[in-house]
Nucleic acid binder design. Structure first.
Lengths: 349, 349
DNA sequence: GTGAAAGCGCTAACAG
DNA sequence: CTGTTAGCGCTTTCAC
């Protein structure tokens, strides 16, 4: 079996207390003794068990990570950032995914608390109204949100409203006037709400009329006929679509192509997330880039700072800069007013 | 603080042993007592700490997962499968990524062993020659490999040789004769080797000459000029590329497009992995699909079976079926012998 | 500087 | 059926 501290003590000819001190407070032990103990540690290839330490009320060096899914690269990128830092700093990660399911969220938090994680990095649907987060606050379990865009809780995200605003302004600058926002099934998330707000503000400021976000079924092979009709027919069909995330944008592009629309000639598309794979598309996806990996890293650093008590920053939420990636899925519309309105297109679905 | 078993015992008026039994072996305790204990448990909202259990030498219900990266959706999909089953079965996951770095692999295994994980699900570069896996065998720590294609160790994968063989045969059936295999930087992996073997066998069987795999730098924005020249110039330029994975295929497609080649007109592309996003590309990526998520699920089930001792299957490795996805990145070449050889193309790099 | 001993939360003999 | 007790591996007083 793996050696315990007892084995080391016996091998070195000292007590387990001394071995423990040699490991945790080397300066308090005689250099000669220290050397002997270390030799024994090496000889037996001893590594102190985290379990004993944890139980003793020590730091567990365990951090919980709760994500909606890792199928979406947005979260996978975050996780990658967290994992790198955690690994480098000697922390271990316990990962749980929720699929945005409230019961799974509850279960994940409970499980991780039982394991005495020192903190949590997580993404939830709507941070402001999330009762479990209030519980965490009460219980004193430290956490930092990723992507959740709120000033009320410790969080790291981009300014979703402003980012969407910038993106839609860019569409408008390209001459688009009939711009529709598409959202996935999770239109209830704080991010989706703020993105729609930014969209609406950009539209209004340009004297245009914002529309409610159109919900799209993410997993469907084809776009629903009603949706397709909405997007393609009539003189008032949109010329540009602002998709609330990149995966959705990709699904929509596929759906439109199946209906024989050309991107961007017949429809401009703007995504949100900045997934690396978007650049590999043809044409490369125009999108609003969030620094996903950096969001994970920053969340980690904030959590560490809170745990270490060195969290001096007064603001709860950290806003990271977004960037526009002007891909080729956006076409310019000649700005010659109503007459140039593109003809209605008959999809060949 | 969170209540302990003592608090429950005191509250219920029984000993901690009875409380423990009420939890772990309810049938051995008086129904009346059981009821009282359960009421106390509810009243205090007690949940037994996994830490105490773990230390006592109990089952930790912890499984380690070691992946090269989660930036590649292949592994993210596996992980998703594992996570769902683990969650449903009350197991917790400790995740570590290695970037295929041997030192990080060593560290991950060591760390997870310290945490007394009951088993490991992992992917390594080359399973057959991996010394750490021998250590695991010796130490009796159970594990199941994912994607590693070996008969010498417990593993779940597709038949990489056969899958590549099938894919390349399909290219040949489309009239391609000059087919090149491209590999990422990790040409040393068991999968890459077997895929090249399958490629070579398909070529030879068709009377064609296989070439060594051409290594591509994954992260470069552009294809290296020498590579580009190799792919595009001369009368013997390849008409089809078999890429050892989908991400690589996407990068190659981008590189070729920048050089003004049209896919599939000027070059056919076949990937390997079956990433969902490949279908969203334009044209949809032809690829050899591995059931990534199912590989994760199967690996989990095998590991559980080994842990439970119900591992009756005599074969160590499980081979899951692959499938060809005939995307539009493959063009047919009219089979009119040498005269139809496409002209050399001058890339506009 | 070092050792003996208590105890973290829990389970598993062993008594009763 | 229930209680007592030992001990998992470790850290941490408290003596020496």
């Amino acid at each position: 079996m793996t050696p315990t501290i007892k084995d080391v003590a016996a091998h070195a000819g000292f007590s387990i207390a001394t071995v423990s001190r040699a490991i945790n407070a080397p300066h308090t032990v005689n250099p000669v003794t220290l050397d002997k103990v270390r030799q024994s540690i090496d000889a037996l290839n001893f590594r102190p068990s985290p379990l004993g330490r944890q139980l003793r009320g020590e730091r567990t060096r365990l951090i919980g990570v709760i994500l909606p899914t890792i199928a979406n690269p947005v979260f996978a990128e975050c996780l990658q950032g967290i994992d790198d830092l955690a690994c480098a700093q000697g922390y271990r990660l316990m990962l749980m995914t929720t699929q945005y399911d409230a019961e799974r969220e509850r279960h994940a938090i409970e499980t991780l608390r039982e394991h005495r994680v020192e903190g949590l990095v997580l993404t939830v649907a709507d941070a402001d109204t999330h009762p479990l987060l209030d519980d965490l606050d009460r219980a004193g379990l430290l956490y930092v949100l990723m992507h959740n865009d709120t000033v009320r809780r410790p969080s790291v995200s981009v300014d979703n409203r402003l980012a969407a605003y910038d993106g839609v302004r860019m569409l408008i600058a390209h001459g688009h006037r009939r711009i529709l926002m598409l959202a996935g099934t999770l239109a209830a998330s704080d991010r989706a709400r703020l993105r729609h707000l930014g969209y609406a503000q950009a539209m209004q400021q340009a004297g245009l009329t914002p529309a409610p976000a159109l919900e799209i079924d993410f997993n469907a092979e084809e776009l629903a006929p009603s949706v397709l009709a909405h997007l393609t027919s009539g003189p008032n069909r949109p010329t540009a679509l602002f998709c609330s995330n990149d995966l959705l944008a990709m699904v929509v592009i596929r759906g439109l192509r199946r209906a024989r629309l050309q991107i961007p000639h017949d429809m401009s598309i703007l995504g949100f997330d900045g997934l690396a794979m978007g650049e590999l598309l043809q044409p490369p996806l125009a999108t609003i880039c969030a620094p996903n990996r950096e969001i994970g890293c920053s969340a980690w650093r904030r959590l560490m700072a809170r745990i270490d008590g060195t969290y001096s920053d007064t603001s709860m939420s950290l806003t990271l800069p977004h960037a526009l990636r002007e891909g080729a899925t956006i076409a310019a519309i000649p700005n010659t007013s109503e007459t140039s309105r593109p003809r209605s297109i008959q999809p060949l679905a």
